[in-house]
Structures are given as C-alpha cells and as structure tokens.
Computed example of a mutant assay.
Amino acid sequence: MTEHTLKGKNVLIAGGGKNLGGLLARQSAAAGANVVIHYNSDGSREEAEATLAAVEAEGVQGAVLQADLTSPENVATLFADAEKAVGRIDVAVNTAGKVLRKPIVDTTEDEYDSMLDINAKAAYFFLKEAGRHLADDGKIITVVTALLAAFTDGYSTYAGGKSPVEHFTRAASKEFADRGISVNAVAPGPMDTPFFYGQETPERVEFHKSQAMGNQLTQIEDIAPIIRFLATEGWWITGQTIFANGGYTTR
C-alpha cells in the first residue's frame, strides 16, 4: 500500500504566500515536501518571499512564481514552471479567491466579471492544468466558502462565483479517478484574516462569531489540518465539499 505522506512530495499552492496558503506552505515544508508558492501581484511578493525563506529553512526545495490565474495561459505556465522548479507536482492546492460584499442592484458588470474570473474561471483552469500535470495518485484541493450552504444577502458574486467549483470538483474527481487522483473542495466559515474584515462592519463580525462554536471566527489553523489530511491519509475522500466552520452553517 502506498504510504500517504508529504515527505518527498512536490506541492504547489496557489495563493501560497500569506494567510491560509502561507501556513500550508510552511507546514508542508515542515512535513518534508518541496513547495512552490504562487502569488498574484507585486503587493504580495514580499510575503511570498518571506514564506519561501521559511520553506527553504526546513531543508527542502522551494520556489516562488507570480501569475494572474484569470488567464488560462498563465495557469498552464504556472504548472509548467512549477515542474521545472521542483519536479512533477503531487499535490495542488488552490487557496486563491476574492471577496466582495455588495447588493446586487449596486454591482457593476466589471465587478461581476472580476469576481467570476477569480473565483470560478481561475479555479476551473487550475483544475484543468492539475489534471494534465499532476503525478498519478495526486491530490487536488480547492478552498471555497461556507456561504455555499448559507442563505444571506450581499455575497451574490462571491458565493455565486465559488459555487461552480463544487460541480467542477465532482466532474474532475470522476475524470481523474483512473489515475488515482482525488479532487476535493474545503469550505471554511468566515476566516479571521484581512480577506474578511474589509467586507464587514464590526457588528456583522460579532454576528458571524456568534454563529460558531466558541463565539469565534474560523482560524487558518482550523483549516490547514483538513487540507493536509486530504493530501495524505484522506486520499479516499474525493469529489466532496467539506464544510469546516464550527457549526456556522450546513446543508
């Protein structure tokens, strides 16, 4: 039986420079994996390079690659360059996304296009290139949102942009199954990161906290072990969306 461990594996993390992605990069390196860290814009470069330094301090290989993942060509190049940097990718994790809280009647076409490009289109082509490039018995994990099981206002383009990823995930899990590749999505509750606070009032933050165990937001430390499990011993789980939100919401 194959040993399900990250030691000696090659891991690519989209949005891997900071927040959840940065934690996953550091933990993967500590577990013995080589790690390729993707970041989107120049504003994220410094954090990505700091994460790279932490990865390399674990004695493994690391690399930093910049790409706008809303371009399918850039996604293809990202995977090709990741292979050049560390070898055939075994685990591909997509933590990238964009949040917008705005009423439908105030949402512009440009905002709609941007949200769907980042949350749905980029995720689709990340899955496509992972399917083309991953080693047999690889793992693909996409971060979505617990809002997929919520009934709320304001987040039409965010939840709406993430919701297709569930269908992409299920299709990919069937299409890649003959190569032993598992494909899953993880749906955290509102996370205690800068990604969240810019969209909410202090009052709504307190409301979100009140909906979960311990009166708290989801921590990145709550989600990283679930992704690590899916990338190792949890290989038999595939085609699923796992809601991890402290009881915030469910289907």
Rank of each mutant, 00 (worst) to 15 (best):
G8E: 03
N10C: 12
N10R: 13
V11W: 05
I13M: 06
A14P: 01
A14L: 14
G17P: 03
N19Y: 10
G21N: 01
L24R: 01
A29F: 02
A31T: 04
A33Q: 05
V35M: 08
I37W: 03
N40L: 05
E46F: 10
G59T: 08
T70L: 06
N74R: 10
N74D: 13
K84P: 02
G87P: 07
R88G: 11
D90A: 10
R101H: 12
K102Y: 03
V105N: 09
T107R: 09
E109W: 14
E111G: 04
M115D: 04
N119D: 11
A122W: 05
A122F: 09
F126W: 04
E129R: 07
G131V: 08
A135M: 07
D137Y: 15
G138C: 11
I140E: 00
I140F: 09
T142H: 09
A146N: 09
G154W: 02
S156D: 05
P164E: 05
E166D: 12
R170Q: 15
R170T: 08
A171E: 03
A172Q: 07
S173P: 06
A177T: 13
R179T: 13
V186A: 11
A187D: 02
D192T: 09
F196K: 08
Y197F: 15
Q199D: 14
P202N: 11
E206S: 14
Q211I: 08
T218W: 02
E221M: 08
E221L: 09
D222H: 10
A224K: 07
A224Y: 05
R228C: 07
A231L: 07
E233R: 15
T238V: 06
T250L: 14
R251L: 14
